[in-house]
């Protein structure tokens, strides 16, 4: 079968695989965003204990391979607890925790990039810390964080392919299953690669536009 014929024949399965990839990416990124914000804020806290909690979390995420994290959450923890685990749920938990760690670092970096005088000015007006952070620091920090945030979205999208090894039928696993039927490794991997490429290109284009809009807003409002 030619590539074109393969695409036509396996279109529904490929699209279903891509759909699951995108779905897992979006849900994981939302959860990771919450984790990243919470641990990012902890890591700029005045209290040592809170900073330590964030540090431990980020170090564990960065210090272990994603694949090992996935195995630990899919096989390790359920075995220890004697429960049945679902590959998609385990996959989402893994990616959320993983991306959350990196996002926490991005949030920390973004907050630290804002000059200390901004927080001092806000506090000197009598604003409580949380309000100053929310209304003065974070809106500015998010601007500087945007490129790194979008980069992390793309990385997480690509990382979903690792979940194929725990049996999540996302795009990569779909490709493997199709090859198991027809042995057309070259053609199928080419199709799968192209599908990733297209979706990531679309994401990059959107992100470029967002970045441009943000810098435009800064110099012209």
């Amino acid at each position: 079968m030619s590539i074109l014929e393969l695409i036509v024949q396996y279109w529904p399965r490929l699209i279903a695989g891509l759909g699951l990839t995108v779905e897992i990416t979006i849900i994981s990124l939302i959860l990771a965003g919450i984790l990243g914000m919470v641990f990012g804020l902890l890591s700029v806290s005045k209290r040592k204990g809170l900073r330590a909690i964030a540090l431990v979390y980020v170090d564990i995420v960065r210090g272990t391979p994603l694949l090992v994290q996935a195995f630990f959450i899919y096989f390790g923890i359920p075995a220890a607890l004697g429960i049945q685990s679902d590959p998609v749920v385990s996959g989402v938990i893994t990616l959320s925790l993983n991306a959350g760690g990196y996002l926490a670092e991005i949030v920390r970096g973004g907050i630290e990039s804002i000059s200390r005088g901004q927080m001092e000015a806000a506090r000197s007006l009598g604003l409580p810390y949380g309000m100053a952070m929310r209304s003065v620091i974070l809106p500015q920090a998010i601007r500087t964080m945007t490129p790194a945030l979008i980069n992390q979205c793309i990385i997480t999208l690509k990382d979903t392919s690792l979940l194929s090894v725990i049996g999540v039928t996302e795009l990569t696993q779909t490709g493997r299953l199709i090859i198991a039927n027809n042995y057309q490794s070259f053609e199928v991997w080419a199709i799968v690669a192209m599908m990733y490429f297209i979706i990531i290109m679309i994401l990059s284009k959107i992100s470029k536009r967002i970045e441009r809009k943000m810098s435009y807003g800064k110099s012209n409002n």
Binding site: S115, G117, Q118, E120, A121, A122, R123, S124, L125, G126, L127, P128, V136, P139, Q140, R143, K218
Partner: peptide, 20 residues
């Protein structure tokens, strides 16, 4: 402290206006 600070205005060397 937040209440007390409302009563004490502060002007900084670097202005520290909110750019956004």
């Amino acid at each position: 402290i937040n209440k007390y600070r409302q009563n004490i205005g502060m002007v900084f060397q670097q202005f520290n206006l909110f750019p956004h």
